[in-house]
Amino acid sequence: MSSSTATIGASSPKPKIGSLANQHRWSMRASYSALSVFVVIFLTPPFYMIMTSLKSSAEISAQQGNPWIVKNPTMENFITLATNEQFQRYFWNSIWVTALVVLISMFISILAAFSLSRMGFKGSNVISTGVFLTYLVPPSLLFIPLFQIVGSLGLINNTWVLVLLFPTLAVPFCTWIMIGYFSSIPRELDEAALIDGASYPQILILIFIPVALPGIIAATIFAFTVAWGAFLYPLAYLYSADQATLTVGIVRELIRGDVFAWGMIMAACVMAAAPPIIIYTFLMDYYVAGLTAGSTKG
């Protein structure tokens, strides 16, 4: 708090013109040092995650010296996990569920957004509003009735239940993002195409999808994040280990009794967190743009 007021205060121009550059340099320095403190705090858990994942069980239980630093780094935990059939299963389940959910969600939301933003029909406004409202319905409100519903469909303890349910988490927001991007495409573009005799599918595939590609990337990342990290639905509906995805597999199956194999658990977390982190490293700008576009521009 004090650091921020200090930086804001520092950037205020004083009557002396010669000191403006100094002021600016000072404010930069203060900002950097305050941010460094925050970065250290924010990155403590991931850092500790990685450190622990490199420790052997013996080193963890010995409790000697500084726990923040690994003394004898070992890849043992990672190798054990990578060759463990159960863990491979979780990983594979997460991968195919996520891939299918992303495909389904994007298919549904691109079609709907195209229709809602461009073609329009009676009540399309109501649906746009409704989509936004359903985005505000959290999964924790619905998981109990859904338990009965998927139970009656015979999908309890079947990974496919996630393919059915995860789109409900991703589609409303993806549609919302896509409506925003599609609406920003000038109408002249598709009117011209219409006059030239293009059909709606052609307009969608040849004009809208390429032009709104940043939005599509943002929505895809969102769907991916939701499907990869979701915890409540798999925890509630999948109880046997071979059906579990990564999040539930790690939380429920790796923690056994009171012999906590924390090196192993943290190694599993590192491996499970790697795909989103890699994706965000390369595509973060798209995602941030997609996320903030709707809110700051309307």
Partner: peptide, 12 residues
Amino acid sequence: PWVIPLSLSTLT
């Protein structure tokens, strides 16, 4: 912090 799946960072 926002990118790591929440259930996994909570474990940490």
